[in-house]
Design a binder for these strands. Structure first.
Lengths: 230, 230
DNA sequence: CGCAGCGTTGATATGGATCAACAGAAGTGG
DNA sequence: CCACTTCTGTTGATCCATATCAACGCTGCG
């Protein structure tokens, strides 16, 4: 399956000119902070990031997990003020674009503007799926779904190897993504170990029994269209 | 706050040419069906619609509630296949656009392409908020949040009057939006009646005690104020 | 008249939260 | 080097928010 749509040399040249630099950030640092505005829009070049929001009393919900190729800060760019935060989960490399020049992209390279809309729609589809999970799946179903969906996204990026996939999430973060307490997250994970469905060791996860996971999660593996590269 | 950005006569002319018609649909009918593809993209001109997804065993989650001005079918247009369904909640009027001509809009009227991205980002922000609610708020908090957010969206559209706002959702649908059972939805609503926070009569809802609702929901616009330096 | 959809309510069951404690690993400062 | 803290994971006990079950009433409608 093709991952990125092919681009014309002109488009590639335009993107190169549009990009103002790269930024390297350490795990745990904030890329975008809710309630603030920024002059930059980013593309996640390598590493993982977390999009999350919190209630005033500190309850936290991870909205989606960002992987290489995902955009960061589009909402902040569109609405002047970020409504949620983005945090580097691992060390991270970002491609940096200037927000002020963002509209230029639509004017000069309409296809790329279209691609941005595609990415926004794709990002929403992921949140949609998470909402279905958190709203209607049980804890173990959510867990299985999370693992499968991450696995398949990473697989499309060529980031799944023999030894499985990188899995840098703490159990606290898994809980915050699934709307569960940390204790219950731990106990739910344990069930998946005991069923020999997965192994986590050394911040790496291997799926041992994919059919079992799919059954648990009610996972419909649906084809994903090739994404634009930005 | 201005609701719509001003458009040039040329843009308006373009949109009129781009639009291929209007469509009226009765409450309860499907506008978009998950797993199918369509040649149309819509704008909701009047009425309410529900975006929802289901698990194979029938559990249902409403992803967002669509109000006048919202787009319908953007994901379906971008990915060839709709990943969720959209149903008319009330009788509905749609503006119909041709999917095949969608890209033309980016080429000929980049500002409008930009606007589509804006709408997509806006739509995602709403789902984000719902996910935070369903993942981390209690039943009564979710209910209060739902009411406040709908109220404020309708207010911006000028659809809130003396008598409050139209409220065509059944309790089943409220439950499906909040990730609750119908019984618990009923009992939670009752609590809001008893606290004299709201009244629902005749498919219309009036907010009696907004501060109470805001307190319950942690509907706090300052949630993301700059935090103390440590 | 009977039926279907919607709302209501009490009784009971349970999934997951909360509380409490502990263990290992990794850093940190003396 | 050790003492100490912090972060992460683990586990058992108990509690509670919400699900499920089971009725019943109302309304509109064919």
């Amino acid at each position: 399956m093709k991952l990125f749509r092919p681009m014309s040399p002109e488009e590639i040249r335009f993107i190169k000119g549009f990009k103002v630099g790269e930024k390297y950030m350490r795990a745990g640092t904030d890329v975008v902070e809710a309630g603030t505005s920024t002059h930059h829009v980013y593309t996640l070049y390598s590493g993982w990031a977390l999009r999350y929001d919190t209630l005033p009393d500190g309850r936290k919900q991870i909205l989606s997990i960002l992987l290489p190729g995902d955009m960061i800060g589009l909402q902040a760019a569109m609405f002047d003020e970020a409504q949620h935060s983005v945090q580097a989960l691992t060390d991270v490399t970002l491609c940096v674009f200037l927000r002020d020049r963002f509209f230029e992209l639509y004017r000069r390279q309409p296809k790329l503007g279209y691609d941005v809309t595609w990415l926004a729609a794709h990002s929403e589809a992921i949140v949609d799926a998470n909402l279905l999970s958190v709203g209607r799946r049980t804890a173990i179903e959510r867990m299985a779904y999370l693992i499968l969906s991450l696995h398949d996204r990473l697989d499309q990026l060529g980031l799944v190897t023999e030894g499985g996939m990188r899995f840098p999430l703490t159990q606290q973060q898994i809980g915050d993504a699934l709307g569960l307490s940390i204790v219950h997250t731990n106990k739910t994970l344990k069930k998946l170990y005991q069923r020999q469905a997965i192994v986590i060791r050394d911040r790496h996860l291997t799926i041992l029994d994919r059919p079992a996971l799919e059954r648990i999660a009610r996972y419909d593996e649906n084809a994903h269209a090739p994404r634009p590269l930005l």
